[in-house]
Amino acid sequence: MIWFIKNSVTRKNLMALTGLFLSFFLIVHLAGNLQLLLPEVQAKLQYNAYSQFLGGNPLVILISFVLYACIILHTVDAIYLGIKRKKANGVSCSKDKRGRASTWYSRHMMALGIIVFVFLVIHFKDYWYRYKFGELPLDENGNKDLYTLVIVSFEQLWYVILYVIAIVALGYHLLHGVFSAHRSIGLYHPVYNSIIKVLGIIFALVITIGYIIIPIFIYINHQT
C-alpha cells in the first residue's frame, strides 16, 4: 500500500478520478438548479419536490457519500502534493520567469482550489446544513422550502458577487483540470487529447455560464 500513498503518479490518478467524478456531479447539480429559472410558482414547488426526492432516495444518498469522499480525497491529495512540491522545489530562482511557458491558471490550481473549497464550506453551511439539520418552513405540498432560502440569499448583492467569484475560480480550475485529469490517467493518443482539450474548454464554459446565470437572474428578477 505504501507505493500507492507515496507515488506521485498514483496520487495524480486519485486526483484525476475524484476530480472527474466531481465534474460529472457539477452537470447533475446544474441541471437541478436550472429549475430555479422557471416561473416563480412552478419553480418553488418543482425545486422543493426535487430536493425532497434527492434527500429520500437511497441511491442518491449512497452517491452523496461518494461525493463527500471525493471532495475530501481531492482536497487531502492536493495538500499532500503541495507539500511534495515544496520539498522538490528547494530554493526558488531569484528571477523567476518560468511562467511564460504555461497558462496562469494551470500554475495556480491550488489557489483556485482553495477559493472553491472556501466557497464549498459556505455553500454547505448555507444550504446543505440548513436543509438537512435546520428548521425550514414547508411549502404548499408539504416539502421543505429550500427554494425561498435560495431566493432570499441571492437577493443580496454581496452574496451574488461571492458566488460569481467562486464560480469563475471553479471555471478556471475546470479549464485546466478536465484535460489534465485525462492525461494523468494516461490518455496519450494525440487525436483524443485534442478532442478532450476542446471538450474541456466547452465543459468549463458551460458550467461557468450555467452556474453564474442563476444568481444574476434571481437578483435582477427580485429587484422590483
Binding site: S8, V9, R11, K12, N89, S102, S106, M109, Y188, P190
Partner: peptide, 26 residues
C-alpha cells in the same frame, strides 16, 4: 515533484519532447 500538466516542460525543452510522453508513462 509530480506532474500537473502545465506543459511548460515541452515549451522550454531544447528537443521539444512531447508532453504526451508523460501521458504514455502514466
Amino acid at each position: 515533484g509530480h506532474c500537473s500538466n502545465t506543459e511548460a516542460c515541452q515549451v522550454e525543452c531544447p528537443e521539444n519532447i512531447s508532453v504526451l510522453t508523460i501521458a504514455r508513462m502514466n
